[in-house]
């Protein structure tokens, strides 16, 4: 089942999305998509883990050797926004790119989880677009929070799909389209550290909690984004996440 969260007439609602893409309340009432604002599908986001350089082709694209140990960083919940929502491009930069990523959402608390048990702790999957601003990279806790923890720069969704509805995640196609043009294409088969490995690795360090998320990295295919661009990150069997890019001033309005 696909579980989503939307804002409808000022009220946050938990809904499901059926195979005909109908938005349904628990009692079967259908909502018109035009009347809703999509929210992050995880109701109480926990720790957001993200992986750097977790696809060999992307690592070489950035002129890095593939890592021998996962490069994990954390993101604030302020970065999360829903499907069909704006993300902003800062004014003073040269290069901002999307990163289409499969996100595994933790469904059960655990510590020291063995790789072979790892999938028991996964509730399901969603898609995120873990935008990066290369101008802001510095060699301190790289990728630093200034690059990776900005408001709105991790759209996620449209929904959380149950693990069993996806099945095997070891060879899912990922694509990104900018204004309709295919700009990124890869497969989760090229992931260096897979979801069971990451669950084992992280849970050895710390207790994982329901609502924690692991964004598993992105394959090759960087392209700069500009205000007005529409970006769609899609993962086979999981979903297609659409984002429109706005300027910093458009995004912040009165607070700009």
């Amino acid at each position: 089942m696909k579980h989503a969260r939307v804002l409808h007439k000022g009220v946050e609602l938990d809904i499901t999305v059926d195979d005909a893409n109908r938005l349904l309340l628990a009692d079967g009432t259908e909502l018109n998509e035009a009347d809703v604002t999509w929210l992050c599908p995880v109701k109480q986001p926990g720790t957001v883990f993200a992986l750097g350089l977790n696809y060999a082709d992307h690592a070489s694209e950035l002129a890095f050797e593939p890592p021998t140990e996962p490069l994990v960083f954390l993101k604030g919940a302020n970065t999360l926004t829903g499907h069909k929502q704006p993300s902003y491009r800062p004014d003073d930069i040269e290069f901002q790119h999307y990163e289409c990523e499969l996100v595994a959402v933790i469904g059960k608390a655990g510590k020291n989880i063995a790789r072979e048990d790892a999938m028991d702790y996964i509730a399901g999957y969603t898609v995120c677009n873990d935008f990066a601003i290369r101008d802001y990279l510095e060699n301190y806790y790289r990728p630093n929070l200034r690059v990776k923890s900005r408001d709105s720069l991790c759209p996620i969704g449209p929904w959380l799909i149950d693990k069993d509805d996806v099945g095997d995640i070891s060879n899912l196609k990922l694509t990104t389209r900018v204004n309709g043009e295919l700009t990124q294409e890869g497969t989760t088969a090229d992931m260096i550290f897979d979801v069971p490995f990451l669950v084992e690795y992280l849970s050895k360090i710390m207790t994982l909690q329901p609502g924690d998320m692991i964004a598993t990295g992105t394959p090759k295919g960087l392209k700069d984004m500009q205000p007005g661009d529409v970006v769609v990150c899609e993962i086979e069997k999981v979903g297609a996440l659409q984002t429109h890019i706005v300027s910093e001033q458009q995004f912040y309005g009165d607070k700009y």
């Binding site: 926990g46 720790t47 954390l74 604030g76 802001y136 510095e138 060699n139 301190y140 806790y141 630093n144 929070l145 200034r146 923890s149 710390m206 207790t207 994982l208 909690q209």
Partner: peptide, 17 residues
């Protein structure tokens, strides 16, 4: 690996756990 002094505050999160 730094090559230059930090120009910005060096930030990190302590997560929920």
């Amino acid at each position: 690996p730094y090559k230059a002094a930090p120009t910005q505050p060096v930030l990190y999160f302590k997560p929920h756990n």
